[in-house]
């Protein structure tokens, strides 16, 4: 049979000469990212069980109590870290492959024609990633403060409804404190390995010896680059840690599990 080389290769969605299980990675990505999206939306929507004792869920931090916003305050909060992840260079790869199938895997046929990439609306807005990063850095400080607050336990204990008894506070650490701390560490590794931060911190400099503080900028850039090399790992780990922190505090607040005070 006579055919062109292009006809031998991918001309339609999913067509390829590849024989490996190329579909597993995008399918898993779609499953996990989609699952997180559904859980985060539900957890934000219910507007209950987000704090127990000195613990506060990252979905509801900082704690906003307002009357002008008709929905759960979590939506006001999640828009910022959500924007950071949606415009993140790693997640772009993940969801362009898993959801937009653009391409679903390397050297595999795509379902659509008329590709514009990130040169036109809406994906041209990905270029604003650095602004989402600024907000994400602020959230690292907010969540770090939450970890500090999670070490301030009421001397008179936590009441049965999960609120803290009135009176003085003392230093203490529970399992939840550690869960929140690990979450902040993973989020920090993800946020401070951001490609945009890497650029702004020193990636935009060509001649480090020509600028003021060049050596310091280079060393900082190198530190951010070290985190950046594992950006995918931290992107996933921090995604799981955020969800698991919320799940832990939620289960404590619902009375399903009991937090253990370590000291």
């Amino acid at each position: 049979m006579t055919t062109s080389v292009r006809d031998l290769q991918e001309r339609s969605f999913g067509a390829t000469l590849r024989r490996d299980a190329w579909w597993i990675a995008p399918a898993l990505t779609a499953l996990v990212l989609g699952g997180f999206g559904v859980y985060a939306t539900w957890a934000a929507w219910v507007n209950r069980f987000y704090e127990w004792g000195p613990y506060l869920s990252p979905f509801y931090s900082p704690l906003i109590q307002t009357t002008w916003w008709p929905l759960s305050p979590a939506f006001l909060i999640l828009i910022f870290p959500g924007a950071f992840r949606v415009t993140c260079y790693y997640y772009r790869k993940a969801y362009y492959r898993a959801f937009f199938l653009d391409p679903v895997a390397c050297a595999v046929g795509e379902p659509r024609h008329g590709y514009k990439g990130e040169s036109k609306f809406p994906f041209i807005l990905q270029n604003l990633h650095r602004y989402a990063m600024y907000a994400a850095v602020v959230f690292i400080f907010i969540l770090s403060y939450d970890v500090f607050l999670a070490t301030r336990w009421p001397v008179n204990g936590v009441l049965s409804d999960g609120t803290m008894a009135a009176g003085p506070r003392e230093f203490g650490v529970g399992i939840g404190t550690l869960v929140m701390a690990v979450n902040v560490i993973l989020l920090s590794c993800y946020t401070f390995g951001c490609h945009s931060l890497r650029h702004l911190i020193g990636g935009n400099v060509d001649c480090f010896s020509c600028v003021r503080g060049g050596r310091a900028r280079f060393e900082t850039w190198r530190g951010v680059s070290a985190l950046n090399r594992h950006h995918m790992l931290f992107a996933w780990c921090s995604l799981f840690s955020v969800a698991l922190t919320d799940v832990y505090i939620r289960l404590c607040a619902m009375g399903v599990i009991h937090d253990v005070r370590l000291f």
Binding site: R92, K93, Y96, R97, D102, P103, K116, G117, E118, S119
Partner: peptide
């Protein structure tokens, strides 16, 4: 702007 960061180039 046409590049959508799917990293196939790095993989190969």
């Amino acid at each position: 702007g046409f590049c959508n960061i799917t990293k196939c180039c790095t993989e190969v």
